[in-house]
Simulated assay, not measured.
Amino acid sequence: MTEIRTPRLLLRRWLADDLVPLSEIHADPAVMQGIGDGKPRSLEQTAEDIETWEEEWDEEGFGMFAVEFLGSGELAGAVGLSVAEAPVEVAGQVAIGWRLGRVFWGQGYASEAAHATLEFALQDRGLDRVVAVCRTGDRASVNVLDKLGMQTEATVQPPGHDYDLAVFGIDLTQYQG
């Protein structure tokens, strides 16, 4: 089982006991506003997410990690890698993403987990490049991406949407581990 320990967090595969706490995080409109369609997700949708992430682990050798606090075992959220489907500019590339419960925002947990995940992608899994996508104006996510050393590559507007997405990228030659 793939696990990564940081000073405060354990990044690990998903367990059955993670469903309810993650569904509570997914039910928060503030957490979900920049993810997918921006709408909160139900318990059933969250179960589908976990199933999809576990399938990606099995098929790709990477996926979304459950983020757990060392010591308490409390689930803080998810961070990890996925093969991007959209926007078209990054479709098929490996993307990094995260979502943490709102109570955990502003304490450096997203940066800590994302840094460990990026290192995992580029050094352990041997990927040459990782991308990220966030809505323009999502200052918190841009701050995390800046800390990772990811560079803005483009701004795109998804078809049928009234917002712009910023596309970021980093390759192995740019990574400062």
Rank of each mutant, 00 (worst) to 15 (best):
M64Y: 15
W57K: 00
L22E: 02
G71T: 01
L75Y: 04
E60S: 13
I4K: 09
G34Q: 02
P7A: 00
G73E: 11
E24W: 04
Q33H: 14
P29D: 13
R8K: 12
E59I: 10
W53T: 07
I35Y: 06
G36L: 11
E44K: 06
Q45N: 11
G38W: 11
G34D: 14
D37R: 08
M32D: 05
A27I: 10
W14P: 01
E51N: 08
A30Q: 15
I35E: 11
A47H: 03
T52Y: 05
W14F: 13
L10G: 02
P29T: 09
L43W: 05
H26M: 13
L43N: 04
E56S: 13
W14T: 03
F69L: 14
R12M: 03
I4N: 10
E59M: 10
P7R: 02
T52W: 08
L22N: 06
W53L: 09
Q45M: 13
A66G: 10
R5T: 14
R8Y: 08
R5F: 09
G36I: 04
W53D: 04
P29F: 10
F65Y: 14
S42D: 12
W53S: 10
D28V: 10
P21N: 02
P7Q: 06
E59V: 13
P40A: 06
L9R: 07
A16T: 12
H26R: 07
V31P: 00
W57H: 08
E60A: 15
R13F: 05
A47T: 02
A16F: 09
G63T: 01
P40V: 05
G71D: 06
M32K: 00
G73D: 04
H26G: 00
S42H: 06
L10Q: 11
I35N: 00
D18C: 03
